[in-house]
């Protein structure tokens, strides 16, 4: 049986991406960010963190032929973006495949949304 919980795939993919050196975070989708902002209050602006899975999307191909995973990463300055993205691509794909109950095609898209500057600490 090939039924897989998509939420479980999101978690696996997020963990794999965040484990790649040079990845500092995953960029949540707009809906998540808006929800977090709506829940946020003035006094505790940092207390409403969006879960890392919010930066991953997992979709079954319409014809049921496999999974498509999209990961949106924020990188740290200092490593070549394409190399980090390539590693994320490989690790996410491997992690998702290992989670599937039966072999299915998995395609992955990695989007670098931001390269965070190394800041001078004040």
């Amino acid at each position: 049986m090939t039924t897989v919980d998509p939420t479980a795939l999101l978690g696996v993919a997020a963990e794999a991406a965040l484990g790649v050196p040079g990845v500092t975070g995953l960029q949540p989708r707009l809906a998540h960010r808006l929800a977090a902002a709506a829940a946020s209050t003035r006094t505790h602006p940092a207390s409403h963190r969006t879960p890392p899975e919010a930066g991953v999307r997992a979709e079954r191909a319409p014809d049921g032929s496999g999974w498509h995973i999209e990961v949106r990463c924020v990188l740290a300055e200092g490593r070549r973006a394409v190399d980090v993205a390539r590693t994320v691509h490989g690790r996410v794909r491997t992690a998702v495949i290992s989670r599937l109950a039966a072999p299915e095609p998995v395609t992955v898209t990695v989007t670098v949304t931001r390269i965070a500057a190394r800041y001078d600490e004040p």
Partner: peptide
Amino acid sequence: LADPDRDLRITESAAAKA
């Protein structure tokens, strides 16, 4: 991004910043 075999992308704003 310059990888013909994989679907790797970067936002224009991130690339422009660099």
